[in-house]
């Protein structure tokens, strides 16, 4: 499988009167064609800003200041070229052709994400007409077809509905139909099921899985829910304070998490196969985005904190076996010099 999108050293900062908030701080990852990447982390860790950086939709005072977003674009003659999205003007023709046409996005609050004054049908056909050389009536046919594909009953009548006449789950189906209407090679889903109830969430996830296989598109699935990631993702990236702290195949990460943050996240998850009195929580909260912590950003909350190391040295990504990557000092010689307990022994199971 070939690489579809490669994000290298992405930095998106928000320049506020009170200082610079490094919402995304040298983030590196890649997505392969047809693969599902789960991006996990607590609120405010930079997941959504990463997604918007890829879409080039970061609004001032936010700016993507550095990095590369290498997107592999299929040519008409079957070849492919690699473009750096950050080199394109954010509102230029080329970027707008990619946005919505080749990379599509769905959002957290389905109903608020649809215009209250336009019919849902018109909102879908608008996307089709923007990216495909079809007539209005052809676009409408495609839209109806898409609505049927996302299992909306009476699709033809629903074309004339307004967002406020549909349920949240229905709205998210409409959003998915709209996003997929131009067969994008990448779908960015920013917490698409967070605002939905559990039953609807399951339906939407199932729908997405089905369509993903059918259309062979890649999905960047952003969520704070590890359970959802376990169901959906091939690969997982765990984010903390604008940085990816651990990355690897989903199965590996769930079987054998390396970073103390990942471990703590998994501990806080209810599991069927284990009997526990109560769920673990991670102590503390995500620190202020303006705060300038020395050393590892997770050290104030870390269970395996090593004084004199973790609060002084900034960890760099380390590649482990099985294409795993972890940003933690426990896996460097620093930790062994101090002869502190290493995570493997102290943690899970």
């Amino acid at each position: 499988m070939d690489t579809l999108l490669e994000v290298r050293d992405l930095q998106t900062h928000f320049f506020m009167a009170e200082g610079v908030a490094k919402a995304v701080d040298s983030t590196t990852f890649s997505i392969r064609r047809g693969q599902v990447l789960g991006v996990v982390g607590e609120s405010g860790c930079g997941k959504s800003v990463t997604a918007r950086s890829i879409m080039r939709m970061v609004r001032p005072p936010g700016h993507t200041v550095d990095g590369e977003i290498l997107y592999t674009r299929p040519d008409e003659d079957g070849q492919s070229t690699v473009v750096d999205l950050l080199q394109l003007p954010a509102t230029g023709t080329e970027m707008r052709a990619i946005r919505g046409g080749e990379i599509a996005m769905i959002f957290q609050e389905p109903r608020a994400s649809l215009s209250p004054v336009h019919k849902v049908g018109d909102q879908i056909t608008e996307n089709i007409l923007l990216h495909q050389p079809v007539t209005q009536s052809e676009a409408e046919d495609i839209a109806i077809d898409m609505l049927q594909q996302v299992h909306i009953p009476l699709a033809e009548q629903r074309m004339n509905a307004f967002a406020h006449q549909l349920s949240g789950g229905m709205c998210q189906r409409v959003m998915i139909a709209m996003a997929l209407s131009c067969h994008p090679s990448l779908l960015i889903a920013d917490e698409p099921t967070t605002a939905l109830d559990v039953t609807t969430e399951a339906q939407i996830l199932e729908l997405m899985q089905g369509l993903q296989a059918e259309l062979n598109m890649a999905i960047m699935f952003i969520t704070h829910d590890l359970g959802v990631v376990a169901d959906m993702a091939d690969e997982v990236a765990v984010m903390y304070l604008g940085k990816i702290v651990e990355r690897g195949a989903a199965a590996d990460i769930f079987r054998d998490p390396k970073h103390p943050y990942t471990i703590a996240l998994l501990e806080s998850l209810p599991r069927m196969d284990q009997k526990r009195e109560w769920l673990q929580t991670i102590r503390g909260v995500v620190p202020d985005p303006y705060s300038t912590l020395n050393g590892c950003p997770f050290h104030p909350r870390c269970a395996d904190f090593i004084a004199g190391v973790c609060d002084e040295i900034v960890p760099q990504p380390i590649t482990l076996e099985d294409n795993r990557e972890v940003r933690c000092l426990l896996y460097t010689e620093h930790a062994h010099q101090e002869s502190s307990p290493v995570a493997e022994e102290t943690s899970h199971q």
Partner: peptide, 29 residues
């Protein structure tokens, strides 16, 4: 600042047209 404007932007609409068709249209009501 509403989410539906972001949706419209994610479709690749031109900024000017986007503003007139979505937020302005809603604000005019």
């Amino acid at each position: 600042g509403r989410p539906y404007v972001e949706t419209a932007r994610s479709k690749g609409l031109r900024e000017g047209r986007l503003t007139m068709k979505y937020p302005v249209r809603v604000a005019l009501n």
